[in-house]
């Protein structure tokens, strides 16, 4: 085989290895099904757009110290409220002369921190409550679902405000408050999914192998609920970011001088008529990331929906 042919000959080989209908090992099967999911995800250009923005956000958060032109906390009162494209401050400066671009870059870390923590706590709690309620049924179901109803009865931000006011202001407490208000919809979804799954033949079949309820819930019901939860989480991310920003805006989330985007809007509000960019730029950042999560969620729904992958 000539040198020129090798790369072209290789490409189809690993592709056909990944696209095979007859995988040869456990890992091969897993990788192949992931790759096929990725192919159908890649076909959705809007979802790819969302994914690219989020990957960029993660990279920006990781490499913030390298990317930021200035220290986000250093004040320079001689250079306050500089407009866009000022020398050395591309996105201008805020009321204390801090570089807005640097603050946005560092703010990505806080946004990701909030998003990841909430995404770890709320859906897991909801999944647990919902599947147990749906599978066990009876009075367990009644109690768990009435608790869920109580949480759902309050407007989300109002409930989060109450929690933060009780727990004290700060970013960790904001995360806890948002998570506490975010889990009930996940519990509802997980319960509804569980009710459709619990009487299916494949659950009966594994019962006939002597499997107990714990194994059935964690190994057989969770995998089927998780995909719809992931979709729901990505769609909710926008709301979570906005709730965190809202708490920051009200002074109950991240505390100054932390460059949290909601808090930055709050600070810029005082000058919004004369110095619009101070509040607008973090607002645009929130908008962009929320949009990216929504687009990603739409794409994931198409890929992950278990009802679609049967023949």
């Amino acid at each position: 085989m000539s040198l020129l042919n090798t790369p072209q000959g290789n490409q189809p080989r690993w592709r056909s290895w990944l696209l095979t209908d007859t995988p040869t090992s456990r890992n091969h099967a897993r990788v192949a099904s992931l790759y096929q999911g990725w192919l159908s995800f890649r076909g959705n250009s809007m979802a790819m757009f969302g994914l690219i923005i989020l990957v960029l956000l993660v990279l920006i958060a990781i490499f913030a110290p390298l990317l930021a032109p200035h220290d986000p906390f250093v004040q320079d009162l001689a250079n306050r409220l500089k407009p866009l494209a000022t020398d050395g401050h591309i996105l201008g400066t805020d009321s204390l002369g801090r570089d807005i671009l640097s603050r946005l870059i560092y703010g990505a870390r806080i946004t990701l921190y909030i998003v990841i923590l909430v995404a770890l706590i709320a859906p897991v709690a909801g999944l647990f409550v919902g599947t147990v309620a749906g599978y066990v049924g009876g009075w367990v179901d009644t109690i768990l679902m009435r608790i869920t109803d109580i949480f759902l009865a309050f407007p989300r931000l109002v409930l989060a405000l109450a929690f933060v006011a009780a727990l004290g202001a700060g970013i960790e407490n904001a995360v806890i408050a948002i998570s506490l208000t975010a889990w009930p919809p996940y519990a509802r979804i997980a319960r509804a999914e569980t009710l459709t799954i619990r009487n299916s033949d494949y659950i009966s079949a594994v019962k006939l192998q002597g499997a107990g309820p714990f194994r059935i819930i964690t190994r057989h019901i969770w995998p089927l609920c998780i995909s719809s939860l992931i979709v729901r989480v990505t769609l909710d991310m926008a709301g979570i970011i906005l709730a965190a920003a809202g708490l920051g805006f009200l002074g109950l989330g991240a505390q100054p001088p932390s460059p949290e985007w909601g808090a930055m809007i709050s600070e810029g509000r005082k000058f919004i008529l004369d110095y619009w960019w101070v509040a607008t730029l973090p607002g645009l950042a929130i908008f962009l990331v929320s949009l990216a999560f929504n687009l990603l969620g739409d794409g994931l729904r198409d890929v992950l929906d278990p009802k679609d992958d049967g023949s």
């Binding site: 456990r26 099967a29 299916s200 033949d201 494949y202 009966s204 079949a205 594994v206 057989h220 995998p223 089927l224 278990p306 992958d309 049967g310």
Partner: peptide, 9 residues
């Protein structure tokens, strides 16, 4: 079509 778990090989 109903007796095999859709996500289990």
């Amino acid at each position: 079509y109903a007796s095999l778990h859709p996500r289990h090989s």
